[in-house]
Every structure is written in C-alpha cells, then in structure tokens.
Design a protein around this nucleic acid. Structure first.
Lengths: 105, 105
DNA sequence: TTTGTTTATGATCATATGGTCAATAAAAAA
DNA sequence: TTTTTTATTGACCATATGATCATAAACAAA
C-alpha cells in the first residue's frame, strides 16, 4: 500500500468523521435536496451547511446540480451507506461485549 | 439515528482518518507487535507511535498486552479491514469513472 | 432597472490535532 | 543497589478544522 493511497483512504475517512456531515449524507439518502432544505434538516446555519456540502463534494461523496436559484445536492457514491452500516454493526458488537463483560463474562 | 450515535460513528471514522494510524493497523494485520517494532515499520518516533496507538486503543480498534518491558498491540476489531477494503473499492471505482470521463465517456 | 432569494466565499476566531522534547514510569539486567 | 531498556505522559508549538459574520455572486421577479 503506497503512501499516496493511504492518504486518499485517510481523506475519505476524514470526510465522514464529522456528525453534521453524516447528518447531511443521511438526509440525502431519500433523494436530492437543496441547501435550504438541508440546512433546516441538520439544524445549522446556511454558511456552515454550504461549507460541509463543499467538503463532501470535494471528497467525491456528493455531487451538485444547479437549477435556477437552487443548488441540489445528491449522493454521488452510494457505497457510503454500506460503510456507515458497517461501522454501526461494529459499534453494536463492541457495546454488546462490553455489556457481557460488565455482567460477568 | 440519535445525535449520540452519530458522534460515535464520526469518532470511529476520525480514528481512521490519519495515514500513520492506517499504517499501524496494516502492520498489525499479520499479528501482534510491540511499540518498537511498530515504530520502525511506520517510520516515526517512539513518542508519536505511542500516541497513535493510544488513540486507536481508546477507539476500540486495537488492544494492548503487557509482557515484561514490552507492550504488544493487536487488532481488537478485525472488521476494520473490511472497512478499509470497502473504501479502497470505492476509490478505485471513482478513479475508473474519472478516467472514462477523461477519455470521452 | 431595482429588489429579493438562494448559495458561496473571504476574513476571523477558538479549539482540536499531530508532532516533538524532556521527563517519568515500569520492569529487567548488571 | 544502580543501570539499561521499553513505553507513556506533560508541556509546548505549528497547523488544521469547524463555526460565524459580513459580503459577494448568481439568478429570478417586480
């Protein structure tokens, strides 16, 4: 595994390492939405929403489509959901084994 | 999906968002190693290696075992490799489609 | 044209992060 | 005991990151 490849993999993980960005991704699972809709769904400012959307777009996770005044964002890499599901499963197993350890093996 | 759950998922991704930490994980795929071995494999200082190992251990990705002067680290959550493979596949597909676009659809 | 609406960007700030050096454990060997 | 080896921790620094405010850009409507 080359250093450059590692950097790209790390960058992909970094894009997903922020709760607001995860919220945006989840909000877009059902289909494309414009910035105002997304801003209301994730509960932050317009500027902040725009910044996070840019981050995710640069990372290749989202893509954008302009229509009049609106910019619609949508999922460009749908495999992202499998990734999130994978992490969820891993965390669930971790908590389960912690609970088992606490109850006495 | 609760805010707390999102924070935990984000934290897991953040632990994986650093090339040196990915190197450490890959170095441990074959089996446990002590800090000095890992330090030489990833090519950084002992202090820095120790810090990253602590990060990964706190995240539940690695675990540690002490034996005399040595501390051996090993993979605690083996599902991490599927996660990395998943990202690799996603990036490969992305570059492939970029190449196709450049050559003219 | 002017006005209003939606989105993006520049400047700035506080905090987080990764890295380093020095010092400190902790355990084995002399 | 003292010395050596291995690993961790505290203090510090430079940079990165997320958030915010004000402004600008892009476009539609009046």
């Amino acid at each position: 595994m080359s250093g450059e490849a590692l950097e790209m993999i790390a960058a992909r993980f970094k894009a997903l390492s922020e709760p607001t960005r995860l919220k945006l991704i989840i909000a877009l699972e059902a289909g494309e939405k414009n910035v105002t809709e997304l801003m209301e769904l994730v509960g932050t400012t317009q500027t902040n929403t725009s910044r996070h959307l840019q981050n995710l777009t640069d990372s290749g996770i989202l893509a954008r489509r302009k229509e009049g005044l609106n910019v619609f964002y949508f999922i460009a890499d749908k495999s992202i959901f499998e990734l999130c599901d994978h992490v969820c499963g891993s965390l669930e197993r971790r908590f389960q084994s912690q609970q088992n350890a606490f109850r006495g093996e």
